[in-house]
Amino acid sequence: MKTRFTELFDVEHPIAQGGMMWVGRAELVSAVANAGALGFLTALTQPTPVALAEEIARCRGMTDKPFGVNLTVLPSVSPPPYAEYARAIIDSGVTIVETAGSGKAREFIELFKASGVRVIHKCTSVRHALSAERMGVDAISIDGFECAGHPGEDDIPGLILVPAAADKVRIPMIASGGFGDGRGLVAALALGADGINMGTRFCATREAPIHDNVKQAIVANDERGTNLIFRSLHNTARVGKSAVSDRVVDILTRPGATFADVAELVRGAKGRVLLETGDMEAGLFWAGQVQGLIHDIPTVAELIERIMGQADAIIARRLSGVRA
């Protein structure tokens, strides 16, 4: 299946595995690459830029196919050394980067482009996608309201957001949020995207470097199995439904509640403990509404083969038979 996405990034299938904190490691990314899709290491999962360079080298030792690195740039009181991470990416010879975050990402996008790196920028609205296009990025990942992580504050689902963006964005675009099977891939292509990005679905694979308890929780949850947190703080985030995220929602709906009231519950370090130990009470885990479409834990290769087989069958049989 050829699309502008597969041709731009020299991959076989129009499927990307986006960068996920604590999850985007060499084991998963190399498996995605070897299966013909595009995987992304997560830069800030690594404790230092030197460790990131080592992880890039480790991933290269596991695949000879294209893969990229995600660098998410967010405002922070004590920000990580973003410039050093960016330099580690460039110096390691990585040619594909997924960027995300605030306007502060602009300087790194410009740095990557000046170094010959192809950039996919994650956006949650048409206006942000057009701004990124003007910055000179090579492709857009447009995130609908269904997605895990931060879906923005507009609450626009993919069924509207993807075609609305496709009407205006001229560069290649992949759809993110709610995708996990061949039906979603065909739908995304019909809506005007050039492929799909999956996060939660890749977490429920054998190669995902997270505890089996988390994978089983994703399989057990249905499409209602998420919570939206930080709504009152105008920094909405979608996470897996659990006792901890239920508590966060409850606290933040109380009059006068602030981030400080939930800071200890939502710490990223606690989320890492959950992913690594399987203690589902340790913190939060990120998951999208696509949980309702996830019923097993296949290998990455099995998953991608299944998605492409479903998509081919839908296009060749179901859609071809609709027109009289």
Rank of each mutant, 00 (worst) to 15 (best):
L319M: 14
T200Q: 08
A204N: 05
C203G: 05
F145Y: 15
G101I: 06
A43K: 07
E12L: 12
A257Q: 11
Y85D: 01
E305N: 14
G278W: 10
G271I: 03
I294P: 09
S76I: 00
G180I: 07
K270N: 15
G240Q: 07
E207G: 07
C123T: 12
I307P: 07
A35T: 09
G158W: 09
N221I: 00
V214L: 15
F5W: 02
E276D: 08
R238G: 11
E207C: 12
A129K: 03
G68Q: 02
S176W: 03
N221Q: 14
L303S: 13
T277L: 06
E276A: 08
L111V: 09
A148H: 07
D10H: 15
A129L: 04
I229K: 05
G136F: 04
A31R: 03
Q46H: 11
V219M: 10
M280N: 01
F202H: 03
A175S: 15
G256T: 07
V69H: 01
V239S: 12
V219N: 05
G283V: 10
S30C: 11
E223W: 10
F145Q: 10
E223R: 13
R267D: 13
P80Y: 06
Q17M: 15
H121I: 03
L41M: 03
R231Q: 14
R318Q: 15
I251R: 08
V322T: 10
A51N: 10
V94Q: 01
I315M: 14
V23N: 00
V23L: 09
A57G: 03
A263I: 02
Q46F: 02
H211C: 05
L44V: 10
R231I: 12
I229Y: 07
Y82G: 02
V29S: 04
I160L: 14
T99H: 08
G184C: 11
A100H: 05
G288N: 11
F40I: 02
R127W: 07
G103Q: 09
G309Y: 04
I315N: 04
E133T: 05
F145V: 08
A237Q: 09
V248E: 08
R306F: 01
H128K: 09
A83F: 04
R323H: 10
E305H: 11
A16W: 00
A257D: 07
E7D: 15
L293C: 08
R87A: 13
I174G: 03
T3I: 11
I210A: 14
A129M: 02
S141P: 10
T205C: 09
I90N: 02
L275V: 02
G136Y: 06
Q289F: 09
T258D: 04
G180N: 05
L28R: 06
A83G: 15
M173T: 06
A166T: 12
A187M: 12
R306N: 12
A148E: 08
I56E: 02
G178A: 08
P81L: 04
A193L: 13
A301G: 04
G309S: 14
S320V: 15
D155G: 01
R201Y: 06
G268Q: 07
L303R: 01
P75M: 03
A86C: 08
G268K: 04
E207S: 13
V300G: 11
P157H: 02
A166F: 13
D296W: 01
M62Q: 14
T236E: 05
L189G: 04
E110G: 03
G283K: 08
V69G: 00
